[in-house]
Each structure stands twice: as C-alpha cells, then as structure tokens.
C-alpha cells in the first residue's frame, strides 16, 4: 500500500509520515495520548489540526512546485506553447516534408509561392532575381515613403523647408530621404533588367503573353512614380525637370494646344491635357499637390493592383518559365490552322 500514494486513505495519514495502515496509525495515536497525559478526546482535537496545517501548506506547495517545474520544462520548447501554436500553425520540423509545404501554404506572406518548385528554378543565374528585387524595392519605397510623409506638407510655402528640416533636424532624416531616392533609381534599373531577362529567356511566350503586357504597364507606372516624386522637393531640379516633361504634353495631337489639330479643336493653355496634369497652366501649387497625390496614393494603388495580377498570373501560368528543357529546331510543330 505504501507504494500506492494515490490510494484515497493513504493521503490523510501521510500527515504523520509514511502512510501506515489505519489500524497501526490508531495504535500510535493511543500511545501518543498515553504519553502526553492529556485527557481523552483533547488530543483528537489538537493533533489532527496540527497535522492539517502542515499538510495543507506543505503538500500543495510541493505539488505546485512540481507542477511549475513540469510547466517550466514545457516552456523550454516554445514551439509547444499555446502562444506559438496560435501564431505558427506548422511545426518547424525540417525532416517532415508536409511541414515544409504547410510553412508556405499557411503563411499569408509566403502563399504567393507554390509549395514546391522545379529544382533548377532557384538558380539565380537564370532569373537574376530582378523581379523579386524590384518588388522588394517597392516595399522599401513604401516604408520610407510613409515615414517621409510624416514630415512633408505638399504646400508651396512649406515643401522646400520640410526637405531642409528633414535633412538637418530630423533624426536619420537625411538617410531616409537618400534611401527613398536611391531605391527609386535602383527600382527603375532592376525593372529594365528584369524585362531584359524575360526577353533573353523567351519567358513572354505562350501562355505568359498577357502577363508581359501587365509587366509593361508596371514599367510605365514605375517611371511615372519616379517622375511624380521628382517635383516634391520643390527645388530647381524637380521644377525644371517637370516643366520640361509636361511641356511635351502641350504638343499632344488633338489634346494639346500646340499639338497637331489641337488649336482647331479649341485647345488653349487653359483647357488642354497639360492643364489637366498640372492643375494650371504653369508648374505651381496645384501641380505640387497633384504630383503628391499621384505619387503617394494614386499610382501606388494602381501599381499594387497590377502587381497583384502580375504575381497571381505567374502562379497560374505554372511559376517562372524555366530553366526549361531545350526544344530542338526539328521539333517545331507546324502551325495548327
């Protein structure tokens, strides 16, 4: 019986020690009573109470400590905690292929990827990583751009001062502006190189023709994003670059007041397409505001939609195009009529 502590009557007896059988315990009590010289019944009243206090305090404490130790052991593996499991649904067990797939499929940021890809598709010699880097730069630009927006007023009297403030007083303001600028330039370069790679690998071919067109739109939007941002510091550089750029719009056929057939259709500097772009006949306060809205809200929104389509279609067209097995000239099938 002593080796079964979970026995119901084993526990209370444990007060004076070692879980002896009840009849033996009664004998001991009798002996104690005799030696103490107290009247009958008194001992009964005192002894159990004393044993009870010790028991009540020590036993749960020991049990609690035991539980805490066991629980603490559990915390040594954070992946087994409720908190962890509520965030990450999948164990990070590398040996289980199912987990590796689920790691991608159950993650909103990674689920644009398939679970598995062609073993050669991870070669960066093939992709140059330019599409992914372009997207990453868009994220960097969004992040730094939002931070810049906290310090910038698209108002003629304030814009240039804001840039000075940003450069000289805001902690890390100069770094922030530099990073936004250079990331934008880099994004133009990576977009072009991405397009170049897609041509060299023939990745625009069936079934990806439409996605190429989406990509061309994204290229144009990238250039426009960069261009609309150029005016925002409201310095000579941006002002004249945008003046030169938008002056071309005067010459739009039909819609510009200096373009072919423009004047015949009633175009003047105050109602033509350039006026619409600038919100005026010269690059001024309205142009600054329009540029700002296009740069921070309009074009990024449109670009995000096109990006979503671009990435989605890459998945739907079976991932990136290669490196595919080569086809031979002699295998070119005659065109189906």
């Amino acid at each position: 019986m002593a080796d079964r502590p979970d026995e119901p009557n084993g526990k209370p007896a444990a007060g004076n020690g070692d879980g002896k059988p009840p009849e033996e315990q009664a004998d001991i009590n009798k002996l104690l009573r005799a030696s103490s010289g107290l009247p009958e019944g008194k001992l009964e009243a005192v002894e159990p109470r004393r044993a009870g206090v010790v028991t009540k305090v020590r036993d749960p404490a020991v049990a609690l400590a035991e539980r805490a130790r066991a629980e603490f052991e559990g915390y040594k593996d954070p992946q087994q905690t409720q908190l962890w499991k509520s965030i990450f649904r999948v164990s990070h067990d590398r040996s289980d292929p199912r987990n590796r797939s689920l790691a991608v499929l159950s993650n909103v940021f990674l689920h644009l990827h398939p679970a598995k890809i062609n073993r050669d598709a991870v070669r960066y010699n093939f992709t140059w990583g330019m599409g992914g880097i372009t997207f990453y730069l868009f994220i960097v630009l969004t992040f730094t751009g939002v931070l810049l927006m906290y310090y910038y007023h698209p108002v003629k009297v304030q814009a240039f001062k804001d840039i000075l403030y940003l450069e000289h007083d805001v902690p890390f303001g100069k770094l922030l502006r530099n990073m936004h600028r250079w990331a934008a330039h880099l994004m133009v370069i990576t977009t072009w190189l991405h397009m170049f790679r897609v041509v060299l690998t023939g990745s625009y071919k069936r079934p990806r023709e439409f996605n190429w067109c989406v990509g061309v739109v994204l290229l144009v939007l990238t250039l426009l994003l960069s261009f609309t941002g150029y005016l925002l510091p409201d310095d000579q550089l941006g002002f004249w670059a945008v003046t030169v750029g938008t002056n071309m719009a005067r010459a739009t056929p039909l819609l510009g007041h200096e373009g072919p057939f423009g004047p015949q259709l009633g175009m003047t500097p105050f109602n033509d397409v350039r006026f619409g772009l600038l919100g005026g006949s010269i690059v001024d306060a309205n142009a600054l505001l329009r540029s700002y809205i296009w740069h921070c809200i309009g074009i990024p929104l449109v670009a995000s939609i096109f990006m979503a389509v671009h990435f989605w279609r890459i998945r739907k067209d079976g991932g990136i195009s290669g490196p595919a097995p080569v086809m031979l000239d002699s295998e070119m099938k005659p065109l189906r009529k």
Binding site: F160, L175, Q236, W240, A241, T243, V244, G245
Partner: peptide, 27 residues
C-alpha cells in the same frame, strides 16, 4: 544612402531657368 546624398538645389524659381535643364536620367 550613407555615402551619397540625394541632390537638392535652390528652391524652385520659375524666373531662373536651369541650363541645361534636364529630365530625370531615365527620361
């Protein structure tokens, strides 16, 4: 970004034409 600063010219001045006045390099 640490080694090279983004350019910032004088405040915009419609009366003082930059010469040469160039578009951003990609244009």
């Amino acid at each position: 970004s640490i080694t090279l600063n983004a350019p910032l010219e004088e405040p915009a001045n419609p009366n003082l034409t930059m010469n040469p006045s160039k578009a951003p390099w990609y244009f």
